[in-house]
Every structure is written in C-alpha cells, then in structure tokens.
Amino acid sequence: MKTKKILQGKIISNKKIAPDHFKMAIQNEWLALKARPGQFVMIKVQEKNNDPLLRIPLGVHFTEEDRTYLLYKVVGPGTATLSQRQKGEIVSILGPLGNGFDLSKNSPDKEALIVAGGHGIVPLYMLIKELRKKGIKVAVFEGACSKEHILCENRLKQTGSKVFIATENGTQGKKGRVTDVLVEYLKKYEKNGKRKNIGEKYIMFVCGPKPMIKSVNKIAEKFKINTQISFAEYMACGIGACLGCAIMTVDGYKMTCKDGPVFDSKEIKWDAQ
C-alpha cells in the first residue's frame, strides 16, 4: 500500500490571517485521511511555467473531514505565488511525507510542553488536538515578534490547553522570548524542590526557527526532558532522492524529509547546527 502519492487537491479557501500569513484549505479525501501530526506535503505553487520551479514543503496544520489545512508565511517567490491561488483551483500535492511526531513512547500522565516560534505552531496544532483527545495535559508556549503575528491563539485555547505567549516587542504576553516563559514555567516546579525528576513529568514538542530550537534544546538538556523537534531544512524532492535536506546527527547526516522532519533532540549533533 502506498504511503505517499501525488494528489490533486481543490482549493477550498486561501485567506490572509495575519500580516504575512495565509491559511489554505485543500480538499482531498486520501490526504486528509492519511496525514499524521508532524508530517508535511510538497505543494506545487503553479503550473504555468518553470519559475518558481520546485515544490515547497509545508507542514500539515490539521485535517477535518476531507480537508487538509496549511498555514504559511509569505517569504519569497514560492509562497507569494501560492498566496495568489484562488478558491476552486486545483493544486498538485505530494504527500503526506516524513515521519511525524512519535506518541508511542509517551506515558499518559506526562504533561506535554509545546514550544512554537512563529509558524512553528503549524504542525504542532494537529499534535495538540491529538494529545488532548487522549486526555493528555498540554501547555503551549508560543512566541512571535509582535501581537499580530501570534497565530491560532483562540483555537489553541479551545483545545483546553494552557497557553503562554511571548512577543519580542511586548505587545502581547510576556516581553521577550518564548524560551523565557518556558523556563519560568519549569522553574516554578523546580522551586518546590522537585528539579531532580522534572524530566519524568514532562515531554516536549518543538518547532520554530533554528536559534529558538537551539535554545530550547539547551533547556531540554538542563531539565532532562524528552524532546522531539520538527526541523525545516531546505528541500528539493521531499522523498529522499536528492540528498539536499541533510541534517547532522550523532550517526552522521540524515535526510530531514525521509528520516525526519521530527527528530529526538538526542539524535541531533548540536555543535554542527
């Protein structure tokens, strides 16, 4: 049985939801059925000519009935072209791809700490929904440059998760970095003299820009928390053929598209990042 396919998806909506961010709903039954939290798709932004050329990787935000939702930031030609696509048009999607988050090792009494920087919340939202369905406690730490860039806040709250926000300019939540809020949260627990087994209480899931990921990893190491991180290396094929999306791990280079995008923080060779 095929685990990934090239699919035709109908655009149901493609709307601006923040200054630089668009949310797109795509109709394709098979994709919506198969996609797991943490997986991604390679989407062809246009068919007219050869520029932009490559498909772009986007995380699966969540699925609902026969729809798959994507949420993307316009940063260059690929995402700008995608933002122009209209309702009713057909797009070619390759997916679902990658391993996704691993929930098999999680004991149900651990609280899940979700750390998202910018659109890092995209793949984490689907995970949160799944964790909540299993009755797992969730605390979300979301960071962005300013209030307008905080994504999905209301929807996150509706999942029954605790939500903590940090903005760099202080327009919402705590002024500073998302990692500051995370450390504060962990320290509260530490104050009660329980630092020793803090790692047994939590499991952490992370997605965001590289500098944020690196500092979250330091926190994970310090508090000995099992942590899974979704990486976004540059990709060309998405299927393990070009060897372009290499990431240095303790066992040498691995491919983010095939072996990832989710890696256990202990698998990564951090001084090579």
Partner: peptide, 18 residues
C-alpha cells in the same frame, strides 16, 4: 557530503552542493 544548506532554488533553476 557537504555541509548544509545543500540546495537552494534560483530563477528557473536549482543550485546544489550535495
């Protein structure tokens, strides 16, 4: 193989250093 990033899109092209 080479140090990442190893690929980037350029106008109608792909630049790689696998």
């Amino acid at each position: 193989g080479n140090k990442p990033p190893r690929i980037v899109e350029t106008p109608a092209g792909l630049l790689n250093s696998i």
